[in-house]
Simulated scan of single mutants.
Amino acid sequence: MPTKLAMESAISIGHLNHYFGKGQLRKQVLFEIDLEINTGEIVIMTGPSGSGKTTLLTLIGGLRAAQSGSLQVLGQELYGATSQQLARARKYHGYIFQAHNLHGSLTALQNVKMGLELHQELTVAEMKARSRQMLEQVGLGDRIDYYPENLSGGQKQRVAIARALVSHPKLVLADEPTAALDSKSGRDVVNLMQTLAKEQGCTILLVTHDNRILDIADRIVSMEDGKLKENATTAS
């Protein structure tokens, strides 16, 4: 459960290192990562492919276990956390993947409803009502019963955003959310993320190669060869 410590820093990382493989095949992929992100900030992380951006994002999202250092997310220390504790921590995150990751056999409404599965305090009727409302907010109120195969790329990504935000998470993590979209659809998607996140008061950490969307950030950091640095210039 997030503590009051999280009110100032949504993410606080210190001396974080990470390795893939074991024995002679062990390779270090993250080096002494230090990062503070305040509640309500929109931070964009840039850097070349293979620099460690997605690895760091998955650690923050509790999709991988931290191996060393300190990794506090929403006031909870994830280094040393059990798989059950990581699963509980994910209840407070929204995660947007590069390839929307929608289930082809589920409608838009059913896909969004999956974002509420960890919230057992809600009834099925409440989950459906919240999912419908979220799809209306992303402009897909007339597509709730459509399957992904009948949606455009931009519409699929909006469903993914709705799924990530339907639980009103404190933190949204987005991995290349505009990579498969044309410039207009990409801009629409990040504007939507920015607007809804501000309305809900959540923090966003967004990984991207897309220089066209850097202006939505409060701050830009970059990763290279597994090392993180603050950019000299901050987005306006």
Results as ranks from 00 to 15, higher is better:
residue 3 T to L: 05
residue 4 K to G: 09
residue 6 A to H: 06
residue 6 A to M: 07
residue 6 A to K: 12
residue 7 M to P: 10
residue 7 M to T: 15
residue 7 M to Y: 13
residue 13 I to L: 05
residue 14 G to T: 11
residue 17 N to E: 10
residue 19 Y to T: 12
residue 20 F to Q: 11
residue 21 G to L: 10
residue 21 G to C: 13
residue 22 K to W: 06
residue 22 K to G: 11
residue 24 Q to G: 15
residue 37 I to S: 04
residue 44 I to Y: 06
residue 51 S to K: 01
residue 51 S to I: 03
residue 52 G to Y: 02
residue 60 I to F: 05
residue 62 G to D: 01
residue 71 L to P: 14
residue 74 L to E: 08
residue 81 A to I: 13
residue 87 A to E: 05
residue 91 K to T: 08
residue 95 Y to E: 02
residue 99 A to Y: 14
residue 100 H to K: 00
residue 105 S to W: 01
residue 116 L to E: 01
residue 121 E to I: 14
residue 124 V to A: 09
residue 131 S to E: 00
residue 142 D to A: 11
residue 143 R to T: 08
residue 143 R to C: 03
residue 145 D to L: 12
residue 150 N to E: 13
residue 154 G to A: 03
residue 154 G to S: 08
residue 158 R to S: 02
residue 163 R to N: 00
residue 166 V to E: 00
residue 178 T to C: 14
residue 180 A to I: 08
residue 183 S to T: 09
residue 188 D to N: 13
residue 192 L to G: 02
residue 194 Q to T: 12
residue 194 Q to H: 15
residue 207 V to M: 01
residue 209 H to K: 13
residue 217 A to R: 07
residue 217 A to W: 06
residue 222 S to R: 07
residue 224 E to P: 14
residue 226 G to L: 04
residue 227 K to E: 04
residue 230 E to W: 13
residue 233 T to W: 13
residue 235 A to P: 10
